[in-house]
Amino acid sequence: MRHPLRALALGVALAAMPACSSLQLGETRLENPAAAARTPDQRAYALLHAYAAIVEEAADIVRDPAAPLSLKRALGQAERAATPAVETLQIAVTGYMRARADYDAATSADQPVLERAASALTIAANRLSEAIAAADRPIAELEALVRRR
């Protein structure tokens, strides 16, 4: 045999082909928990937990001595950009839940009290929607960095 190494490589490649074709390369699929939510508070809750999970993984990457420093710094920047948006989201969801509790408590109260509670709930819901929209992008950017590694 003139080229044993080439023949061996070809043999191995051919033997491995059926196994490789049955593998789903890159099969790790990241779920979007917020997509399952039906109410603003559920969406905010999903985003907060998802953000925490992404930051936990980012911390593991930063602790890894084999990870390049440039990536660690990029993660640091992305985390610093996302954290204020997530803090605003925390305040907004807390305000929304308080306003909703006030509204629930006011349903048996007289009309002016109920109207005040309803408009406070509307304002809180709008603020929460804005906070969710503002947090979406920086969280997605941090997630993309963790994925890209």
Partner: peptide, 10 residues
């Protein structure tokens, strides 16, 4: 690990 955490939240 991240996929498992996100799936659990979902």
């Amino acid at each position: 690990d991240l996929a498992a955490k996100l799936a659990s939240v979902r």
